[in-house]
Amino acid sequence: MSHLSRTLPLKRAAHVYLVQDKHLLLVEERMDDGSIFYGLPGGKALAGENLGDAAVRQVKLETGLTVTDLNFVSLLEGEMLTGTRNETYAMFARFTAHFTGRIDPTDPEVVGVKWVPFAQVEGLVRYGPPPECEERNPLIWVPTRDFIAGNPRTYYPI
């Protein structure tokens, strides 16, 4: 039972499903290895910041859109990247929201913002190496797959 005595860094993040005409808004970001990663708008919460406020702030930064009326969809929680230098305990919230404004990202890591048809979302996801990269863990995408299919669960233990 030694694993109970370990202290893991906590990673809290919030992402928002922005939907328009059966399209999901995704951001394109350049990864450290130069590849392009497609993800939901949102990101890490700052110290002392709640997940809802993190979602609003990060969506504005990554897309230029203002989101309001957040509705909680799901929470993904558990240990990730065990045995790597990025080992962490993750709490990732997903919301839906109303949005206004125009797409105008100010995050320098964002190289594009795209409305992607539901049927094409999963085809853009790159699983696999590097193993230190939680975005490429298939479990991260299970809540999104369920959301697109119309049957999201509230809780996803990792």
Rank of each mutant, 00 (worst) to 15 (best):
M1W: 14
M1G: 15
M1C: 13
M1R: 12
S2A: 15
S2E: 15
R6S: 09
T7P: 05
L8T: 14
P9E: 06
K11Q: 08
K11S: 13
R12F: 07
A14I: 13
H23Q: 12
L25A: 04
L26A: 07
R30K: 03
M31Y: 08
S35F: 01
L40P: 05
P41E: 05
G42E: 11
G42I: 11
G43E: 11
L51K: 12
A54F: 13
R57T: 14
Q58D: 13
Q58F: 07
K60T: 10
K60P: 06
E62T: 06
G64V: 13
V67F: 01
L75T: 11
L76V: 08
N86Y: 02
N86A: 02
E87L: 01
E87V: 02
E87M: 00
Y89C: 03
M91P: 06
A93K: 00
F95N: 04
A97F: 03
A97K: 08
R102K: 12
R102A: 08
V110P: 09
V111K: 04
G112E: 02
V113K: 01
K114I: 06
W115I: 13
V116D: 09
P117F: 03
Q120V: 00
V125H: 07
R126L: 02
C133N: 10
C133E: 07
C133Y: 04
L139D: 08
L139A: 10
W141N: 09
V142E: 12
P143M: 06
R145D: 07
D146V: 05
I148P: 11
I148D: 13
G150H: 11
P152T: 15
P152K: 13
R153Q: 15
Y155L: 14
Y156S: 09
